[in-house]
Simulated scan of single mutants.
Amino acid sequence: MEAILKDPAGAVIGLDFDGTLSPIVPDPDTAVVHPGAPPVLAELGRHVGAVAIVTGRPPAKVLELGPALKDVPGLVILGHYGFERWEDGRTSAPPPPAGVPRAKAKLPLLLDSLGVTDAAIEDKGRAVAVHTRRCADPEGTLARLREPLAALAAEHGLVVEPGRMVLEVRPSGMDKGHALGAFLTERSARSVLFVGDDLGDLAAFDAVRSSGLPGVTVCSGSTEVTALAERADIVVDGPEGVVALLRELTSAFSR
């Protein structure tokens, strides 16, 4: 943290969205950004080199759930694990792989064949996710779905990304670590802080470690996932703790 405080203009602040800037909820479509996040990110952006949200969500969905994020100066959203990028009001992305819509079409039939009727399917455009949080047995259903979803993904040249009561079928070749690492190089970062909460954020933690830069990893803690907390430099209590930490950081810059 010392390098960030001494040279904020060289710092990149990276953050996950769900569970980090937005509380986890049973229905992902009803998630909302923490009300304190947009103003503190805007203040943070006035001091540091760059602020980036690195998420599995499409950028358009992030902005739908947190409209005030559009007003954060200089914010970059690296969505779909870096496949899509939103910056200055514009989104850029390569064409989606053909395997994704094919897997989406087969997914309802697969769930029906397994007798899974209470899982929620989230169409993420370039990926499709199955959430079990609202199931009668969330953990048991998640376990039952692991192998069938892995087989479906492999059939269409895709991979499965596990998370907090969710399994996501998505393209390979990109993860939060690749996205963050490339962004650090692009911005000629001299230090980095990354905040995450789920298994997909481990790759970003690895990118911080392998960047060769002074880096800080922060876990937005939960009882559902402990792997990040075990590897984080700082552990805070969910999105409320993340916002409080960022406020402390901006206050330190102001002083």
Rank of each mutant, 00 (worst) to 15 (best):
52 A>W: 03
187 R>Y: 13
132 T>P: 03
183 F>M: 10
83 F>E: 01
53 I>L: 10
242 V>G: 00
176 K>M: 04
16 D>V: 00
171 P>G: 10
214 P>D: 15
206 D>M: 09
80 H>W: 05
123 D>H: 15
164 R>N: 12
196 G>Y: 05
62 V>C: 13
167 L>F: 06
213 L>R: 08
230 E>Y: 11
146 R>E: 15
196 G>R: 02
88 D>K: 11
35 P>K: 02
123 D>N: 11
141 T>W: 02
85 R>I: 11
58 P>I: 09
153 A>N: 05
129 A>Q: 04
89 G>N: 13
122 E>D: 06
85 R>H: 05
57 R>T: 02
6 K>Y: 10
52 A>P: 07
95 P>D: 14
234 I>H: 06
26 P>N: 08
173 G>N: 07
128 V>W: 01
22 S>T: 03
143 A>M: 07
243 V>D: 00
148 P>N: 11
36 G>V: 09
57 R>C: 01
253 F>I: 09
137 D>Y: 04
62 V>G: 00
118 D>E: 06
166 V>P: 00
246 L>A: 06
61 K>H: 14
48 V>L: 04
20 T>V: 08
183 F>Y: 15
242 V>H: 05
183 F>E: 10
136 A>G: 13
244 A>D: 09
239 P>Q: 02
103 A>K: 05
149 L>M: 13
70 K>F: 15
198 D>M: 07
200 G>V: 02
81 Y>F: 11
218 V>E: 05
137 D>W: 03
169 V>M: 07
131 H>A: 00
249 L>T: 11
108 P>F: 12
123 D>G: 14
76 V>S: 06
177 G>T: 06
243 V>M: 10
226 T>V: 10
104 K>I: 09
223 T>F: 09
77 I>E: 01
84 E>T: 11
47 H>G: 10
66 G>P: 04
179 A>P: 04
203 A>R: 04
149 L>K: 03
120 A>T: 14
172 S>Q: 12
137 D>Q: 14
184 L>F: 13
242 V>W: 01
147 E>A: 07
11 A>T: 08
21 L>D: 00
115 G>A: 13
56 G>I: 04
93 A>Q: 14
164 R>G: 03
137 D>F: 08
194 F>V: 14
19 G>K: 00
123 D>K: 06
65 L>P: 02
245 L>F: 12
61 K>M: 10
84 E>Y: 03
34 H>N: 10
114 L>R: 06
154 A>V: 13
221 G>C: 08
62 V>W: 02
68 A>H: 14
105 A>P: 07
89 G>L: 07
203 A>M: 04
96 P>T: 09
85 R>C: 07
74 G>E: 12
132 T>C: 05
150 A>S: 10
94 P>C: 11
244 A>W: 03
161 E>G: 06
206 D>V: 09
120 A>W: 07
204 A>L: 09
212 G>H: 12
168 E>L: 06
136 A>S: 12
35 P>W: 02
235 V>P: 01
108 P>W: 10
20 T>E: 01
131 H>N: 01
45 G>A: 15
246 L>K: 00
34 H>E: 04
194 F>W: 05
103 A>L: 10
130 V>D: 02
188 S>V: 12
117 T>M: 13
102 R>E: 15
71 D>M: 07
144 R>P: 03
252 A>K: 14
20 T>Q: 00
109 L>W: 13
100 V>E: 02
19 G>I: 01
